[in-house]
């Protein structure tokens, strides 16, 4: 009898419905928008967490990310002429992501490499900036990594941290002779070349760059991939800037 009761508890209520997270088919490369050379529409909202210095919630496709920033916090001990940056990634249990530890490490690494050049570190000496990213939903792939970068940057802006530029990241996938911007592809997909690139759009400088492919990638394809990435990054930057402007107009009309 007791065995039965236990089983029921493990299975949950009788009318429980399992959340079905569809696995992505890497053969099907569309970004659900029909327009594969432009990033998908993004939903952002700043200042969603009151306890942090800055925060941002970002949605793109089925990716849902929350980034929070704490700092600049005072660092004790030896004098440091530059600020330190800590990035932690937390993948929620219900997000449907497998292999959490490894994935979170690789996302944290990429985000750190993108946001460090964006921050004017010399202006905030002996300080620590903590960036924490919470992945609420979405498959892990290049698009997830890029969304994490974009969410972190918006959270940094919300925290009022001095930046050289609004860095935006975008992923481009090449399959045969076709190029797709901002699509969800599994990291280990075969027969595709994937490029993850983060730009400082205003100065058109690359801050971080990753290529994932099972085979050797020719110089020409890298150049072709980059030629798609640059306008996409600029497009994202404009989208984020217009969000900031909209928010600003709303706020200033409210206070006075």
């Amino acid at each position: 009898m007791s065995g039965l009761a236990d089983r029921r508890r493990n299975l949950g209520p009788i009318d429980f419905q399992r959340i079905d997270i569809p696995s992505l088919d890497s053969d099907e490369l569309t970004n659900n928008q029909g327009n594969a050379t432009q990033p998908r529409p993004v939903f952002v909202r700043q200042g969603v967490a009151a306890q942090n210095s800055g925060s941002c919630y970002l949605e793109v496709g089925d990716i849902k990310i929350m980034a929070t920033v704490n700092g600049p916090l005072q660092l004790r001990g030896e004098f440091q002429s530059q600020a330190e940056i800590e990035v932690s990634v937390n993948i929620q249990e219900f997000s449907g992501v497998e292999n959490k530890e490894e994935t979170s490490k690789s996302i944290a690494e990429f985000v750190k490499s993108c946001i460090t050049p964006a921050i004017i570190l010399e202006e905030i000496p002996k300080s620590l900036i903590q960036v924490s990213i919470r992945i609420l939903s979405g498959t892990v792939g290049s698009a997830q990594k890029c969304a994490s970068v974009n969410a972190s940057i918006m959270a940094l802006i919300n925290a009022g941290i001095v930046l050289h530029d609004m860095v935006t990241a975008v992923s481009v996938v090449q399959k045969d002779e076709q190029f797709f911007v901002d699509v969800d592809v599994n990291e280990n997909s075969e027969n595709v070349n994937q490029l993850l690139v983060a730009y400082k759009p205003a100065t058109k400088k690359i801050v971080s760059f990753q290529i994932m492919s099972a085979q050797a990638v020719s110089k020409e394809s890298i150049e072709a991939l980059l030629s798609y990435a640059e306008p996409a990054c600029l497009h994202l930057r404009n989208a984020f800037a217009s969000y900031l402007l909209e928010d600003y107009v709303k706020e200033s009309s409210k206070s006075e």
């Binding site: 964006a118 004017i120 202006e123 802006i157 009022g160 941290i161 001095v162 930046l163 050289h164 530029d165 609004m166 400082k200 759009p201 205003a202 100065t203 984020f240 800037a241 900031l244 402007l245």
Partner: peptide, 30 residues
């Protein structure tokens, strides 16, 4: 917005929330 060009005229002095790029132009940092 951060990274936006404020002015390319060197006559202005740069205060908080701005920085100079390598091209000696003034950009916003916040």
């Amino acid at each position: 917005t951060p990274g936006e060009l404020i002015t390319d005229d060197p006559m202005w002095m740069r205060g908080h929330g701005t920085y100079t790029g390598q091209d000696r132009k003034t950009y916003s940092s916040v």
